[in-house]
Nucleic acid binder design. Sequence first.
DNA 1: CTGAAAGCGCTTACAG
DNA 2: CTGAAAGCGCTTACAG
Lengths: 351, 351
Amino acid sequence: MVTIGDVARAAGVSRSTASYALSGRRAISLEVRQRVQEAVRALGYTPNAGARALATSQTMVIGLLAQLLEGEFAPAMLQYMLGVSDAGRELGYDTLLITEADGAHALRRITDSRMVDGLVLLNVAHQDVRLPVLRAAPQPGALVGLPGDCSGVDVFDLDFEEAGRAMVDHLHRLGHREIILISQPELVVQRGGAWVWRLRNAALEQAQRHGMVLHAVFGESRQPAVGRSLNAVLDTYPGATGLLIDNEAAAAALPMVLHLRGLQVPRDMSVIGRYSDEFAQIFSLPYSSIDSAPDRLGRLAVRQLVRRIATESESEEPYVLRLIAPDFVDRESTAPPRGQHRSGQYTGRHE
Amino acid sequence: MVTIGDVARAAGVSRSTASYALSGRRAISLEVRQRVQEAVRALGYTPNAGARALATSQTMVIGLLAQLLEGEFAPAMLQYMLGVSDAGRELGYDTLLITEADGAHALRRITDSRMVDGLVLLNVAHQDVRLPVLRAAPQPGALVGLPGDCSGVDVFDLDFEEAGRAMVDHLHRLGHREIILISQPELVVQRGGAWVWRLRNAALEQAQRHGMVLHAVFGESRQPAVGRSLNAVLDTYPGATGLLIDNEAAAAALPMVLHLRGLQVPRDMSVIGRYSDEFAQIFSLPYSSIDSAPDRLGRLAVRQLVRRIATESESEEPYVLRLIAPDFVDRESTAPPRGQHRSGQYTGRHE
DNA sequence: CTGAAAGCGCTTACAG
DNA sequence: CTGAAAGCGCTTACAG
């Protein structure tokens, strides 16, 4: 392979001069710089990443710890991953993708061996076993997902509580008084998926504040269970006029379920989802939704991570906890509940 | 950070002895080996990956070039990626994920800087601009996807021609005489998505051989265009009794389309798809299908790549071109065409 | 069975 | 403005 020594020889300068000419870290005469650049081009020189990492203690690589857990909606994960990878590249970083089931173990391996300059953890649980490892690591970390303890890391997530309140408020404003919330499978909650219960609890509280009835249930993650459970819920609460769907698989299954029950949206049922706009477009989910903005969250996490890598040794910047405001995408799937629609009155309970 | 020098000092041996004790590349007395291992544990030593890479010219990292192109079905890509990442890890390799739009440029950067020991390219086009770069690189490469020129690389793909024939044969055997094939959007074909036309051309030939009428059309990749185009096709060919769906978005949209047209599967329409089993499960696509086996293909590519990395300098192993046989997953979405069903006769044309 | 030394390809103080 | 040298943390011939 062609090394900086070859470049130096071809340009008739020392290796250090060649290095400085390329990095620009000290003044170099125009003539020498041009000779070096010419040699680089002629020889097709690219610095060896491993050697550079060894010399500078910087790998220019970010570790991305994805977690694909049972009962969760895998396709959503891809969008976070792309946000991280693309943002990293724009900032000069490559992305090491770690998908091992044992995330804590993988994290220790990656950080101990100094393969990366920083880490992004996706799908962070309330008590995430990866966090103690991350805190003990010499590299900084940024999370997508809000854990119980945010110390020592930068945290980014959707404001799921605000999302839950916004969904409830929206239907309340339209006059709905009995609604249903379909969350992720209970397994996800038991495993510590705090985002699920943050939305759920906030929605329940808000409904109570408004004097609404909110039936909060856990959905399923796969067909045919998803469809069955949707039907069961609709059977159980025939008086409900609104549906909040914090569950991608349920959102995808819902159009057919409602259709087979002869229910039209929004005439017979108002629906609000919570998923990414990209997902809505691919499957044309016809429901207004809170955009989960995976791409944006991934990018935010990387940007902060890179900032922290740069300023790591310097003054202790305070850690960031940023919950982004839910963005409501209107797809006209909500309306006043039946009966009220025609009268234009938003006052009574459902008749 | 703790280095092998620290370990050596703690164990009272030289650095080379410590290194050999850990690698096992030469005989070490039991006593010394134990002292070294004890020092490693006590100090929490992990070799520095960059230093090791520099010394051995092995990074133990595989580069994964994903390509998310417009008009293609992004969620499918994730499954290939996971297959590669998981298989790599099992073989001792980490995965560098490259998602840059300019794949050829990214590939050159990664290979020139020696960040990886080998490359896996996903979504390979007929004339893929990344291939010349890959062939010129010092690292070996494995492809998922069959290009026009396979020289210098190991290639893995589904046997899309056999898949096309199998789909046609299946419906022919049941007595269908007029069927429709919905492929990916035309854009995908124009861009060189050879897998699309391999299935398509093979299906057309096979239909002709059987004396069947096959209407081959290009579908769409997003709603609402997908649904519209499905309806338009069904309007155009009212005599068709079978549907071959080589298009994930169309497969996801089809149940509702057929339902709204009052068509039951397989009573009124036989359907065969081509998508991964995982995808079928998440959305419970109710159609028999050819499994595109993304996980398996990703794993095969990595396994061969690692084999080639190991034997690279040795005798020239011939390059592999492996098209895996299509696997038919029966979900009971096919039957004899209407009318024949009752008679049990598979002889006539549709009446 | 073990050690001292060279070398992988860079970067960056240290000198001039 | 430029060069010779040290050093990053490993591995692996070369000696003994």
